[in-house]
Amino acid sequence: MAERERRQTPPFGGVFVSHARVMTTDDMGRAIRRMAHEVIERNHGVEELVVVGLQTGGVPVAERLAETLADIEGVRPPVGTLDVALHRDDIGLRPVVPEAVTDLTTDLDGRVVVLVDDVLFTGRTIRAALDALCDFGRPRSIQLAVMVDRGHRELPIRPDYVGKNLPTRRDEVVDVHAAGVDLGVMKK
C-alpha cells in the first residue's frame, strides 16, 4: 500500500510497524522474472499484451514486469495505469487521490490485459478493476498478476501469476515498497 494512500485512509491512519521483511529487493526481482516467463509462456510471446498497473501500489510492479518482459522478448508491451477509486463498492472509505491517474490510451479490444497489483487481499479492488476495464473496451482476456497473495478473499477471484503466497492474519498489513516486502501491523 502506498504511503500517501495509507496516510489518508481512515481505518488505518496510523503508523506501519514492520514485524518481518518477507522479501528483499532481489527476491522481488527474481519473482518478477519468473512471473514474466510465465506470462510469455502462457501467451506465446508479448505481442498481444497490455500491462495495466493498479493505482497506486500496482504501478511500479507493472513497470518492472514490463521492463522484464522487454528484457526477455525484446519487445516492450504497452503499459497503462488504472485508478479504481470511483468503481469501488466501498467508495468513500478510501480517498480519491488526485495524483492517482488513469492512463489507458491503448485500445484494449482483442488484446490480452495483464492486470498488476502489489497485494491481493479481499479481491474487491480487482472486482472494481474488472468493471472499470470493461468501460475501456473488450479485451480478449484479462489475467491477474500480484506481487503478494495474502489470502482472505471475499469474492471468487484468483490470480494467474503470484510473486509470493503469504499466509497472514486479517489484522496484519502487507507493505510492498522499493526495498522489499514487509509484514506488520498498523499502530495508532
Binding site: M1, P10, P11, F12, L86, D90, I91, G92, L93, R94, P95, V96, D117, V119, L120, F121, T122, G123, R124, T125, R150, R170, V173
Partner: peptide
Amino acid sequence: FLLLGSGRQLGAVDAGGSVEGDR
C-alpha cells in the same frame, strides 16, 4: 462527488469502526 461521495460515508466509518483493509 465531494459532497455526496466522500464525506458522509467517511463519517459513518468513524462511527461504525470495522473497516478492513480491502485489497
